[in-house]
Design a protein around this nucleic acid. Structure first.
Lengths: 248, 248
DNA sequence: CGGCATGTTGAATCTAATCAATCCACGTGG
DNA sequence: CCACGTGGATTGATTAGATTCAACATGCCG
């Protein structure tokens, strides 16, 4: 049911891309004319699965998604969180077989874009090709930041760092301001993203609340002390490679 | 001092690229004619540093390198290991500012290729452009595998998994066979790569030696029981996205 | 041959995991 | 309108995997 609201949908992608680079008018128009197929998905639903060979990419229009890997004995590692404007399986353009899964976190609207159309776009507009490459590279930069966190930071620092990252990413596409943002993740999700247990997440969150650093309740993050949060996590936003650097 | 041996050098890149895709004759020739500047570097020497804005990429011709991030209090996270044929800072083509450093592990020969030449190459040969994109995406896939390991696997599994990965990567470019390969890393390097301490690495290596799984001595890894190693680490080579799948 | 980096081992300690209840908010149906 | 069910959050008690500290061994290089 493509309609006026879809237009708003694909604009989310433009907003995202303009947060990491500059687009010309023609390029914006070319992106707007991408054919998309819109789906509304429930919470915790797989979009693509480990081993799949998708022929399309999914653009998040509303809601959140995450990439994850399942290991033996029910262990799960969340690899990234994705917000509106993101294309969490963009790499499938060049890597046919998925080495992980992508799922929604909460109810989400996604737009499917055929690989072929994206390929044509990169042929007609090499700059957009470069920009999509750049986008996947930023994903890689975020992986590196997470790796450093999981490998070498304390639980407290890891959680603080993640909140800084997500707040800035949301802010960059206009989905956060005044140190408040949506955060539709359970404590179990945080645990699986940060290499901890839900119990420990709970305890650290309590401590942060006690120190009036942040409050996470009913899927909303409130940052009470942004500067302290930055300091606690030694956060340096450079790795997000945002074009217009935010209030960091 | 470009000479006959350099030719052999850039062939390393071709060998690497052909391990993850197919090249036409013209493409191989175009790559061979890239202008390169060869340097010999000592062990533990930075090639590019966090914050740099390089105007060239570095191709490893011999020796090993690694990406790493430094955190406060001397903490270090190694983000990836790189072997001959790899271009560990290829992402700088699209992300001008480095968000981490790259250094040699042991003495290494590297070839510097100006960004401009690589860009021209991707314009003249879009397939090579896609292939370079693919290469950076495989780096990303390896990051994901490491994240899952650091976040959710035991020390024993992590170490085993890393050895499987490195053996297959080396084998793919002809630098390993018969379950032996170079492994010029100290126990401290392994610790910083896997989110552990050198002491613990030492203990787990001893255990693996005791179980006749692997032996790591004088910078050489000998795999005594490949199948057990695969099983111990639940290793699935799919994430390496190798063209000609190895004996896994 | 001497010096320094790396590897090895033991003992004590700690962070975070595990196990196990209990609590709470919310939505549903009787 | 309230009992009930459910998923998520919270808390306590205990344990385990890995760290830390410290000492000593080994081996490589100039």
């Amino acid at each position: 049911m493509p309609s006026a609201s879809d237009q708003h949908g694909i604009d989310m992608l433009i907003r995202k891309l303009e947060s990491i680079a500059t687009l010309s008018y023609e390029e914006r128009q070319a992106i707007r004319s991408l054919p998309i197929r819109i789906h509304v998905l429930g919470a915790r639903q797989d979009i693509v699965r480990d081993g799949d060979q998708p022929a399309q990419c999914c653009l998040i229009l509303s809601g959140w998604a995450c990439r994850y890997k399942l290991l033996s004995q029910g262990k799960r590692q969340i690899l990234s969180f994705h917000i509106p404007g993101d294309i969490p399986d963009l790499q499938s353009l060049q890597l046919p077989t998925m080495d992980h899964s992508v799922a929604t976190m909460k109810q989400a609207t996604v737009a499917f874009i055929p690989h072929e159309c994206l390929r044509n776009l990169t042929v007609d507009f090499p700059n957009i090709g470069g920009l999509l490459w750049r986008d996947t590279l930023i994903d890689g930069a975020i992986y590196r930041a997470w790796m450093a966190g999981i490998g070498r930071r304390s639980a407290y620092e890891r959680i603080a760092h993640l909140f800084c990252e997500l707040y800035l990413k949301l802010q960059a596409v206009g989905l956060a301001e005044s140190y408040r943002c949506p955060m539709p993740v359970t404590q179990m999700d945080l645990a699986d993203a940060l290499g901890l247990t839900p119990v420990h997440i709970n305890r650290v969150l309590r401590e942060m609340r006690g120190r009036t650093l942040i409050t996470l309740r009913s899927s909303t993050l409130v940052i009470d002390a942004w500067d302290d949060l930055l300091r606690a996590s030694e956060f340096d936003p450079a790795y997000l490679h945002l074009e217009k650097q935010a209030a960091a």
